[in-house]
Design a protein around this nucleic acid. Structure first.
Lengths: 211, 211
DNA sequence: TAGATTGTTAATCGATTAACAATC
DNA sequence: TAGATTGTTAATCGATTAACAATC
């Protein structure tokens, strides 16, 4: 009946954002009640897996009825930590960094972008959606002062480990890493990778080994 | 001794790009020989898992010696289909589309960007690294004519399914999807998703459920 | 040859699915 | 109440790890 979240396997956790997305869609469509069977048909998970997954966090459903969409959506938002607020910085302000800075949806879920950083003099001093781009030399001072929770690394891979070290030293709790490298950080620092080329290579594999 | 690639589990396949990365690094460092034990220490997989993984595709090692880095790297490139060449288009030429267009590394591995598409008149007619941005109305004609293999969707989610339908109709084999939505496509079309917000939400979860 | 390390089988572990009693 | 659907236990399936004979 809701075990300690620490015990929950990553397999389950990685499915949570998908529940979040589908429940949001249902709410937008003004569907207020859903069964695991219906969710199963929509999402492609088995109904059994859905009930197992959700029951890790609590008994959100009701026998004979199913789940209240609004309530379940709220619970999953809480579980994912989307009710909180986070200060973030982006390091590396090229196209990718700017793309993320411009993705306003993240603001909506509590991820507040405080600043971007770069080494390129053409970028330093610019603003991206009102957020300033600073010289990377100012990174550490800024983080110390502003209580940044999440550092987002969008630099080329050569610089990524050095930036990670600086972020950790200045006290960020988590790094969202877009550089194609596995960063070495202390155990208590959370790393979430988006390895674009890994993803493209898997697509390539599948394309070459179809059916 | 190399089973049919179709039988290999996605768990194994999703590890392949990481092998590819580490072997590339070793080659760059002029390391020409490696054992599963050494790889294990570097990559954080067990030596046993590494040998199992590689043996799905063939016996690339040698008892008492280990693996020839150059050979193994070559094999994995072949397995991933990185010796071939692919025609790609990007649909949605905002920051994210441009970021991907500018990532020259993809060219290096055989992913040739033929064109970008957008609806924004300010973008149409531009060139990004010599690649033109066309009106999205020209998408279908272009794909039909140029034999495009991979469509890359970088549009907002509202347009993604419609674009996917058009890509499929025009005959692409695979879609690399960056829109935060699960696309519905025929079975034989390969979809690889990069759900940035899913990734960020997982980071958020981990941040809230540490230790 | 002796030592090292693979390829591969067997054992274990974990995740998914099936089944059903509880209950709304 | 009867029907529906959950929460949860048990069974199955698949993936990882351990062990070791084969062999370089």
């Amino acid at each position: 009946m809701g075990k300690n979240h620490k015990d929950i396997s990553m397999a389950v956790i990685r499915r949570l954002p998908k529940y979040h997305r589908y429940l949001k869609d249902l709410l937008d469509k003004e569907v207020y009640r859903i069964s695991s069977k219906e969710l199963s048909a929509m999402m492609g998970f088995t109904a059994s897996q859905i009930r197992q997954d959700l029951n890790n966090f609590g008994g959100f459903g009701q026998q004979g009825y199913g789940y209240n969409v609004e309530e379940l959506y709220g619970e999953i938002q809480k579980i994912l930590g989307l009710m909180a607020s986070y200060n973030t910085v982006i390091v590396g302000s090229g196209n990718l960094g700017q793309a993320i800075a411009n993705y306003t949806n993240f603001q909506k879920y509590g991820f507040k972008l405080m600043a971007l950083f770069d080494t390129n003099p053409k970028l330093i001093g610019m603003k991206i959606r009102d957020v300033p781009v600073f010289d990377i030399d100012e990174l550490q001072g800024f983080i110390d002062e502003k209580q940044v929770d999440i550092g987002i690394i969008c630099t080329p891979k050569e610089f990524a480990q050095d930036i990670a070290d600086k972020l950790v030293k200045s006290g960020v709790s988590a790094i969202w890493n877009f550089a194609p490298i596995d960063l070495k950080v202390p155990e208590d620092i959370i790393i979430e990778n988006v390895h674009l080329s890994d993803s493209l290579f898997i697509l390539s594999y599948l394309l070459n080994n179809q059916e």
